[in-house]
Design a protein around this nucleic acid. Structure first.
Lengths: 207, 207
DNA sequence: ATTGACAATTGACACCTTGTCATATACAAT
DNA sequence: ATTGTATATGACAAGGTGTCAATTGTCAAT
């Protein structure tokens, strides 16, 4: 979390810093993001930066939290659009994220959201817990869907189904990015995955 | 890939370097891994390091590839143990990885394998493509399972089912690590997820 | 207007990084 | 012994981070 000093800053100045940070994070992997470059672009001093943010990680955390909130609000709208239907909601979320990819700046930044393997110590993982749970904990889809469409009405089971769907979404986004799929390809891939989840891969035993 | 110079080194010296690297990667996030510490522990000069490896990333890549090969071979054994049955194989892989977690050194290092969100530029993602696909491309489970247990016999559909299962496995491992679950908890979680995937979340329409 | 108290800003500083390269060394083959 | 080739070295340039004593800005109270 940025310090209160940061939030006391005039909005223009805040924005200038965030823009500079977003630019830098868009063009460099985390380990190569240079605070020097950011403060140069934002025209603030080294000392000020460290009053506003604890470190580079704190800054990234803030950027991501802004992004999360934006998506979360949009997902609320979507759930109404599709009458709380589960699969269509996931597909709409996918479409929305895909559209964000069209903006070059977002595209680069969005690699955060897709996420992939990286080396970290245990402390680092725990520190990042909040960030990691982005898809799973922060979207809170359970309250946005009609639960009667599931064949079980156990809340934990429904939540697990949501977890799997979001894991699938993440996987599809990852494939899309690395193979540069277009929307049609990406979407049909997602639907194929979701179809398998919907009816399972094995015949139910009616003994 | 390390240079041929590295592979020409006496095995003892290679091992000393790899051990020092593994230690460092186990105790620090990628961005904080210090080559200085590694060469100090391995008792080689700065110059030598850069003859052996292109950079820090090249080193990590090599460490991971070794790890991958180890798991891959073990998975082959497992598939025989469980008569090529799909779900039991996934559960056995999970058990195996969980056991690796008991070794403190492996535990820390294994965070690579679980993977999570991190900021990277597009170039970086492409560079890491090989590393990223670890679970999905490198285990090549299709050839290790009995395909008659699926209700469809379309190869791409079976492969997608495998993808989903591995995404679930990854998710469970992530939850296990961040919440410090014991094996029983972790395993039952995995089975619950896999059960949903097995029979789906919706009743099949027999119109 | 001036004061005083507190908030915000600054940049030099100490201490760390990485990747390079000219030089030194080892050692095998002639 | 000499030559050639592979390997090893560490000082160096260039750049990074986080800190802190000193400075400047702001604004309410006098």
């Amino acid at each position: 979390m940025p310090s209160s000093t940061f939030f006391n800053l005039p909005i223009d100045k805040q924005k200038k810093i965030i823009d500079a940070a977003q630019l830098e994070f868009s063009n460099h992997p985390y380990s190569e993001v240079s605070i020097n470059k950011i403060i140069k672009n934002a025209e603030i001093s080294r000392g000020s930066f460290y009053v506003y943010f604890a470190d580079k990680y704190d800054l990234l955390d803030y950027l991501l939290s802004q992004f999360k909130n934006r998506i979360k609000n949009e997902v609320k709208r979507f759930s109404q659009e599709v009458n709380q239907q589960f699969k269509p909601l996931i597909i709409l979320i996918h479409q929305h994220i895909f559209n964000l990819f069209k903006n070059e700046d977002n595209k680069k930044f969005l690699f955060n959201v897709i996420g992939y393997f990286q080396t970290h110590s245990e402390e680092e993982v725990l520190r990042q817990k909040d960030k990691l749970n982005f898809f799973n904990d922060h979207l809170e889809l359970f309250n946005l869907i009609d639960v009667t469409q599931f064949k079980f009405n156990d809340k934990t089971k429904i939540n697990k189904t949501i977890d799997i769907s979001l894991a699938i979404l993440k996987h599809v986004l990852y494939l899309t990015v690395t193979n540069n799929y277009n929307y049609q390809k990406s979407n049909s891939l997602l639907e194929e995955y979701l179809n398998i989840l919907q009816y399972g891969y094995m015949e139910e035993q009616n003994a």
